[in-house]
């Protein structure tokens, strides 16, 4: 049974500054392709339906839930995953702040939290702590690292914790 809507199609995604050409079904999400297609497993799958933020990546500097977008829709855009945030051996200031404030426990929500935080700073939305808390509420954490996450973001954003 052949169904053209299910036939894998050639696709080029630019992830962390590198072009990846691959074949993916039209219905494959960006999350599926990153994790299972490209082996970039730093992007986490917590719910696969847009409710937890674990799959947050940056697309053209904006936060996006990778499970809620089709890979095919992201061709030609600049995708940054957690693997691409550091500058070589030098961690991004948000990564450093997460370590220093113990803003992670199991670490499973952490890539999404960090990228979400980096994105909201880039979007100019981190005006005060209450705003940051509101904006970070789409990134669930079940271990309860919240106050440390907020402290880490506050440090990088130059807000008083």
């Amino acid at each position: 049974m052949t169904d053209p809507s299910r036939e894998p199609r050639a696709l080029t995604l630019r992830v962390n500054g590198v072009d990846h050409s691959l074949a993916a079904e039209p219905c494959a999400t960006l999350l599926d392709v990153l994790r299972d297609g490209l082996g970039l497993t730093g992007t986490k799958k917590g719910c696969d339906m847009g409710a937890c933020g674990a799959c947050t990546v940056l697309v053209d500097d904006r936060r996006i839930n990778a499970c809620l977008t089709l890979a095919a829709m992201q061709e030609g855009r600049e995708i940054v995953t957690i693997e691409g945030l550091a500058d070589g051996e030098d961690l991004h200031p948000m990564q450093q702040a997460f370590i220093a404030h113990d803003a992670l426990q199991c670490g499973y929500c952490t890539p999404g939290q960090i990228l979400s935080a980096v994105g909201l700073l880039a979007e100019g939305r981190a005006v005060d702590l209450a705003q940051v808390a509101e904006q970070m509420s789409g990134n669930l954490c079940r271990c309860g690292a919240h106050p440390n996450i907020l402290a880490a973001i506050a440090e990088v954003a130059g807000l008083r914790a």
Binding site: L40, T41, G42, T43, T81, I82, E83, L85, A86, L91, Q95, F98, I99, A100, D102, L104, G107, T110, P111, I114
Partner: peptide, 13 residues
Amino acid sequence: PRLEARLKVTGQA
């Protein structure tokens, strides 16, 4: 700090 923190914040864990 956690010994594995770097691996967790870089997506390597």
